[in-house]
């Protein structure tokens, strides 16, 4: 185990399980002191990648480096990382402090110093008052904090979090992710967090890795992903954008079903040989003047941001409400600075 952590990197990593490719062609770098989120839908291979980092899953091909050292064959014990599992995996037969002290047992430290270290961590996580409570007697938020404290007990350089806040209510989730970011900054460790929650990924991460079907779609800062999506998947997944099927004619985009003009002077991000494009736009990209037609389904307040749910060429879309008189049918256009056009991947 090296004393200086030079970051960890994955090079051409692929994992196959029972003949199925779970992840493939993964090249990633996790810098020292960075907070990275692996974001993607369920089953896209995020957790498998985290397990590769932890040493719990051997890659079928590719290598894992810690700095310049190849650690692909290293056991989890040799990886210098702490991990918080989705189920937390707190040992049910031990109380809170014993759970936190458990990783220290291997280091064969005197009991008093182990106890001191555990109490320090519990204090840092603000749960020293439940130190002697049995695990089944503490709340979900406290259990989460115990799991984080336990993962930090050995002083790892890399902390791996597998959807750690998915079972918590919104308020507690927000509180804990702020806290984990504060701790990460304070300890200067690297954190890799798996999540399918965009808000979670964007609020705490320096870098977000968007994954889909075992591959990396895009890596970047939260703002890069929002403002410059590079793939159709990222354009739709990040920001939960609306999607309209279109075709291109003389630099103008027309709706596939109605041939209504969607936008003019368009340069698509990717060119479609079959002339089938997808237009992605957020609810606030809508403008009042335009030819696109939609039938209003219902209105919602959305916490001070009134929106309309409408049906447009068979797709359900969400728009900023620019029609206070609640018409049944609306016509709208799009602010092209907030619109992303991609060739339809499924048709290529």
């Amino acid at each position: 185990m090296s004393q200086v952590f030079d970051g960890i990197s994955l090079r051409d990593v692929a994992v196959e399980l029972d003949g199925n490719a779970i992840v493939q062609g993964i090249n990633l770098e996790f810098a020292p002191g960075s907070f990275t989120s692996l974001l993607g839908p369920s089953g896209c291979g995020k957790t498998t990648l985290l397990r590769v980092l932890a040493g719990l899953q051997q890659p079928s091909t590719g290598t894992v480096y810690s700095g310049d050292e190849n650690i692909t064959e290293n056991t989890p014990a040799q990886r210098d990382c702490g991990m918080v599992f989705q189920t937390l995996a707190l040992f049910p037969h031990l109380n809170v402090i014993d759970n936190v002290m458990f990783p220290l047992r291997r280091l064969k430290l005197p009991t008093t110093s182990m106890r001191e270290r555990a109490l320090d961590l519990l204090r840092m996580m603000h749960i020293e008052d439940v130190a002697v409570q049995p695990i089944d007697k503490i709340s979900g938020g406290q259990a989460q904090r115990v799991a984080i404290a336990r993962a930090l007990a050995q002083g790892p350089h890399l902390l791996l979090l597998d959807e750690p806040f998915s079972a918590l209510d919104a308020e507690l989730r927000d509180e804990l992710r702020t806290e984990i970011r504060v701790i990460q900054k304070k300890l200067g460790i690297s954190v890799v967090m798996v999540t399918h929650d965009q808000e979670e990924a964007f609020t705490v991460s320096d870098k977000v890795v968007v994954m889909n079907a075992g591959c990396i779609e895009q890596v970047g800062s939260p703002s890069t992903l929002v403002l410059s999506p590079e793939t159709q998947f990222v354009a739709k997944f990040v920001g939960r954008r609306n999607e309209i099927n279109c075709y291109l004619n003389d630099g103008c985009l027309y709706q596939s079903q109605t041939s209504k003009l969607v936008a003019s002077d368009v340069t698509p991000t990717t060119v479609s040989e079959s002339n089938k494009y997808k237009v992605y736009f957020a609810p606030d990209a809508v403008v009042g003047s335009g030819e696109i037609e939609a039938n209003v389904l219902f209105h919602r307040d959305a916490g001070g941001f009134p929106q309309i749910c409408a049906r447009c060429c068979g797709a359900t879309i969400w728009l900023k409400n620019l029609w206070p008189d609640s018409p049944e049918t609306i016509q709208f256009g799009l602010d092209m600075t907030k619109v992303f056009v991609f060739s339809d991947k499924q048709c290529e």
Binding site: T75, P76, R79, G82, A89, R106
Partner: peptide, 9 residues
């Protein structure tokens, strides 16, 4: 439970 103990060495 088992895997977490493995990560602890």
């Amino acid at each position: 439970l088992i895997e977490s103990a493995y990560t602890m060495g």
